[in-house]
Amino acid sequence: MSTGDTFLPRRTAQQPTLPPPVRLPPSLAGDPSLPYPAIGTELHELRLQIPGVQGSVLGGVDGLLITHDVPDGLDPDDLAAMAAATFGLGRQVSLRLGQGEFRQSTVRNEAGYFAVYAVGPRALLSVVGADAINVARLHLHAPPVAERLAKLLAPA
């Protein structure tokens, strides 16, 4: 039997029904209209007020650095990216458990802490702390800082 006897249905290209592309807001990183001096003061104050805070970084949820207050030896771009990765995991956990918006995540290592706080829906405050840090005090102090930072970012 030759193949010419059978008529196979002809495949025609179908227009896929894709959802409309998500319109993401522009990244906060590199936005010149942000009040950088005020943000810098907040980050600097955090380091002064809580002994053991080695540095803090404000980054977007996209993992891009907005501004930072970290000493030499810590890479702020890396920290902003790791904060976004932490946020990603936290958000997935929250979505699965139905627990609402991501608020905070702490990683404790043998020799220190890395804490990430949500700053509004679009930014993250990450803090690197020594092992000796009073982490309860950080958890009491940082959320109001994050709230003030969210207000500073809001008009942008």
């Binding site: 002994p51 009073n134 982490v135 309860a136 005090r137 009491l140």
Partner: peptide, 29 residues
């Protein structure tokens, strides 16, 4: 070591014992 409370009892609306715990951790240290 962390300043966190393992348990609290009492307190008043004005006195947050977790704030007291975190602050007094620095005193003890």
């Amino acid at each position: 070591t962390s300043g966190m409370t393992l348990g609290v009892a009492g307190g008043t609306p004005e006195i947050d014992l977790s704030v007291a715990a975190a602050g007094n951790t620095d005193v003890v240290r």
